[in-house]
Design a protein around this nucleic acid. Structure first.
Length: 189
DNA sequence: CCCATTTGACCATG
DNA sequence: CATGGTCAAATGGG
């Protein structure tokens, strides 16, 4: 693209982005891309996400996907979702959730799979810490230094085997067993 | 027909 | 200045 011609674009002087502070909830979740057919489809957490943009990130060889709640959710669900594939491990997705979900899924709520007994076997060794100058092995780096408000970082790693298999539920909605797989990490807000 | 997706450009921030 | 983030409109598909 390199500086193409400028298209006449009506400029709506609408200054988006209202407040730029407070409310700093970031949840970094790492998921593995399904080894089946499509290895490029990010997992769903049970909500509809509407892609609202894609941008390449410096330091990564892959673009980042920006998702937001869809339709009606756009009116109350401040939940946003960011999906970025690791440049070292294209088979892994780094999903960053921020905001709280308020949407509800009536009946048939396909969510996470029944997490197998096997322990988490996610090889995060490699060179995950080889970002741009960070020497830490863990992505939990929030050393801004300057006016760094309390930014909470929750890194949860869970393998995404075949969530697609846990799609619809036959018969009654007595899924029961499926609860929030997410461990504690409850926000006191 | 409707909605989700896509691309570009712009802005705000550090 | 650079980067990241969001919006905005247009198009295609279901």
């Amino acid at each position: 693209m390199e500086v193409s011609s400028d298209l006449n674009r009506s400029a709506s002087s609408s200054q988006r982005s209202r407040r730029r502070r407070d409310e700093g909830e970031k949840r970094v979740i790492r998921v593995a891309a399904p080894q089946m057919g499509n290895t490029d489809i990010p997992p769903d957490d049970g909500h509809t996400w509407r892609k609202y943009g894609q941008k390449a990130i410096l330091g990564s060889n892959y673009p980042r996907g920006y998702y937001r709640c869809t339709h009606q959710k756009l009116y109350q669900c401040p939940a946003k979702k960011q999906v970025q594939r690791l440049d070292d491990n294209p088979h892994f997705f780094e999903v960053i959730y921020h905001g709280d979900h308020t949407c509800h899924m009536s009946s048939t709520a396909p969510l996470f799979p029944p997490l197998p007994p096997s322990a988490n076997a996610i090889p995060m060794d490699l060179q995950l810490g080889g970002f741009s100058g960070s020497s830490s092995t863990n992505p939990v780096v929030v050393g801004s230094g300057s006016s760094a408000s309390a930014a909470r970082y929750d890194v949860i790693e869970y393998p995404v085997e075949e969530m697609a298999a846990a799609m619809f539920n036959p018969g009654t909605s007595n899924t029961g067993t499926i609860d929030m797989i997410f461990p504690r990490s409850k926000e006191g807000k």
